[in-house]
């Protein structure tokens, strides 16, 4: 997919890499949170572009859905807080620290580059083994085969990461998540149009994942985003908190573990899938995982904001009592 080659390297690649590097610098160097966050969101978008350039569309979808979607929402939602004033550091000291950091960074980078330069450009000769095995996996998309068959233990554990992050976050949120009571007309429209569209998109990504890029993670991330939007637009059942939501979250993980046990019972090996029912099992488990991930991500978002929501609600409740002070 060379666009315009320039001394072996595609010019578009160079541009995207340069842009990624610049946004990375901006994201870490801008002192104000707003600027840094936006730079980071753009960094994510450009990364997705880069993933497209390295022939990793699955990763690009995930990056767009998670980096731009849910993680973006998490970061942006935190922006409304007043950025705490940094204790006034001595300017010269700050400069000195930055200089030392830059010097150490340069040394580290040089060392790392030296090591990397020793890597051969030959592709890994073990990779094709995985591609060959796809036939025996029950699905035709290699990455789905890796994620849900060859290395499904990693996937199971990773779902566990998301699930327990949500469990932990839910435990740390102070109050019950409150419904947004007055979303306003624009949001109502958004709720009606965007949310179903996103749910549909999630379903598409899920089903498509068995034969082409897409799958449970991407679908789950989109579903999570849909739930967050639904919540912010005042859709009641999207209030992903409390016992019911947790049940949904852990259900996917438990089902996956159960599948592992079924594999043990059926084939004598944990998590093994018999080719005759592998496709059905993968699709079923992916569906449950999509719901699990989606709800878990929405829980993380709502838990993060719950304290501020509660504080705002308290203030609103206090305001009349104060007699409408100017």
């Amino acid at each position: 997919m060379t666009v315009i080659a320039f001394s072996d390297v595609d010019v578009l690649d160079m541009l995207v890499v340069a842009a990624v590097a610049v946004t990375a610098i901006l994201a870490i160097a801008i002192p104000r949170r707003v600027g840094a966050t936006i730079a980071f969101l753009v960094f994510g978008l450009l990364l997705a572009l880069l993933w497209a350039r390295v022939a990793a569309p699955d990763v690009a979808i995930a990056e767009a859905a998670l980096g731009g979607g849910v993680a973006g929402a998490l970061l942006v939602d935190a922006l409304h807080r007043r950025q705490p004033a940094q204790p006034n550091r001595d300017r010269r000291r700050a400069v000195a620290i930055t200089a030392v950091g830059a010097a150490l960074g340069a040394v580290t980078f040089a060392a790392l580059a030296t090591v990397l330069s020793r890597l051969t450009a030959e592709p890994a000769d073990l990779g094709p083994l995985a591609l060959e095995a796809v036939e025996r996996s029950g699905v035709s998309h290699p990455i789905t085969a890796v994620l849900l068959n060859f290395r499904n233990l990693d996937t199971l554990l990773e779902i566990a990461v998301v699930v327990f992050a949500a469990v932990g976050a839910a435990a740390l949120s102070r109050d019950r998540i409150r419904t947004v009571t007055d979303p306003g007309p624009v949001r109502r429209v958004i709720a009606v149009i965007i949310v179903p569209a996103l749910v549909l998109l999630a379903a598409w990504l899920l089903v498509a994942g068995t034969s082409e890029p897409g799958g449970a993670f991407q679908a789950g991330a989109v579903l999570g985003a849909a739930l967050i939007i639904a919540h912010l637009c005042g859709v009641r059942p999207a209030r992903a908190a409390g016992g019911r939501a947790l049940v949904l979250v852990v259900a996917g993980l438990l089902a996956f573990i159960l599948l592992g046990g079924i594999g043990l019972a059926a084939t004598g090996t944990w998590l093994a899938l018999d080719l005759s029912w592998a496709f059905a099992a993968i699709l079923a488990i992916e569906t449950l995982l999509t719901v699990s991930i989606g709800v878990a991500l929405a829980m993380l978002f709502l838990a993060a904001g719950s304290r501020d929501d509660a504080a705002a609600a308290d203030r609103a409740a206090d305001a009349p009592a104060l007699g409408g002070a100017p």
Binding site: L126, L129, A130, A133, N149, F150, R151, N152, L153, D154, G263, T267, T269, W270, L271, A272, L273
Partner: peptide
Amino acid sequence: RLEVAGWAPPVGILL
């Protein structure tokens, strides 16, 4: 030794 999901390395995971 356990080859998870019945796939031997490098395709699968060994515990």
